[in-house]
Amino acid sequence: MQRILRPKRFNQLWPFYLLAAPGILYFVIFHYIPMSGLMLAFKEYSPFKGLINSSWVGLDNFRQFFGTSDFYILLKNTLLISLLNLVIYFPFTIILSLLLNELRLKVFKRVSQTIVYLPHFLSWVVIYGITISFFGPSGVINHYFTEWFGGSANFLVSNEWFRPLVIFQSIWKDAGWGTIIFLAALAGINPEQYEAAKVDGANRFQNIWHITLPGIKSTIVILLLLRLGSSMDSNFMQIFLMTNSLNLDVSNVFDLFVYHIGLEQFNYSFAITVGMFKSVASLILVLGANYAAKLLGEEGIF
């Protein structure tokens, strides 16, 4: 008779539960318990009355938010920055991973990886300081502009230059760090496939197109789905530092709006309303993209 395997008892698995406990507590305390504050979106919150006793207003906050012209400006600015990150930053990390993977000299490869990883550990304040040093009114770029063309460009206060600078900052700071998962996926490709392709006369570009990219396709899809889930989010600190009164037309995104409404004007209910809309929209995007991925034959994330 086939032996029936019983589940292990708790006293056998308690070390694993103990290791998982800090992570579980983190999510419970900082992610699930604060969800009770979502009811503020349906109330007119008053610090003197408290969360429970504040007057109930139903969907008035949502009607006010969707009825203002700010909603369309915020939606446009947020989605444009996310789209540029999706179209430029995300493929750049894949290309950088492929280039690093093609390096054959191990010492040079490790040094190159370390160099592209280092900017990730710099704070956005430092990144902004470097940006001013290069693109500010008296920065290096404007110095050469003045010397060569007799004029200067207003990079940091220009609507046209705001998005390119934000994408450039993201690529310089985090593209190297974003290659870690792709490099791990590339390491899992069977080397025998490359050897067989070499026997068939394939060159490096053919190897990349027919072996490397198909080998990491599932990883690309999963990371793309996760990025779509955060498409309604912007890097608040980066946007906050790059924003000024002259480029506010293109830099005002949902996260910045929540900061001004919630922390500067103390309109907590309205700020929670905006945050709740962002979360629901992100969930819809993830579910839709995951469903589309499954229709195309990919595994998806759930």
Rank of each mutant, 00 (worst) to 15 (best):
S158Q: 12
I180N: 02
V111C: 05
V253T: 15
S69Q: 13
S123Y: 02
V157E: 13
A271Y: 11
W177V: 01
R104Y: 09
T131W: 02
G288A: 13
L295E: 09
E44V: 00
D174P: 01
P22T: 12
P34D: 15
F30A: 13
K49L: 12
A293L: 07
I284G: 14
R3A: 09
Q64G: 15
F168C: 14
K198P: 01
S36D: 00
Y32V: 14
I211V: 12
N11S: 12
I81M: 13
F302Q: 08
S234I: 01
I220L: 12
L13W: 08
I73W: 04
D200I: 01
N244Q: 07
F236N: 01
A185T: 10
K43A: 09
G178A: 03
F108E: 03
F134Q: 07
A187Y: 08
G201E: 06
Q206V: 11
G50V: 00
A293H: 06
P91E: 06
W177I: 02
V280P: 04
F90G: 05
Y72D: 00
Y291D: 11
A292Y: 15
A153W: 04
F205P: 05
Y117F: 13
D174H: 07
F266N: 15
V221S: 06
G37P: 12
I130D: 00
G215Q: 11
M35P: 07
P164C: 09
N159I: 01
R110K: 13
L156A: 03
G129P: 07
G188F: 02
L225S: 05
G150F: 13
I222W: 00
I4F: 15
G288T: 13
Y17L: 14
R110P: 00
E264H: 09
F134P: 03
E44H: 12
N53C: 01
I220K: 00
G37I: 05
S54P: 06
S152A: 14
I95T: 07
L295T: 13
S158F: 06
V125T: 08
F236L: 10
A184T: 09
Y26L: 15
W209D: 02
R110D: 05
E264V: 07
N77S: 10
V116P: 02
L103G: 12
I220T: 06
D70N: 15
G67H: 10
W14S: 14
L105V: 14
I52W: 14
Q113V: 02
F149A: 11
D70S: 13
F302A: 11
S69F: 05
K198E: 08
I272N: 00
V286W: 08
K198Y: 01
P22K: 12
I171L: 08
K217M: 14
K8I: 00
A21E: 04
V57P: 04
F134W: 08
S82A: 15
Q2A: 13
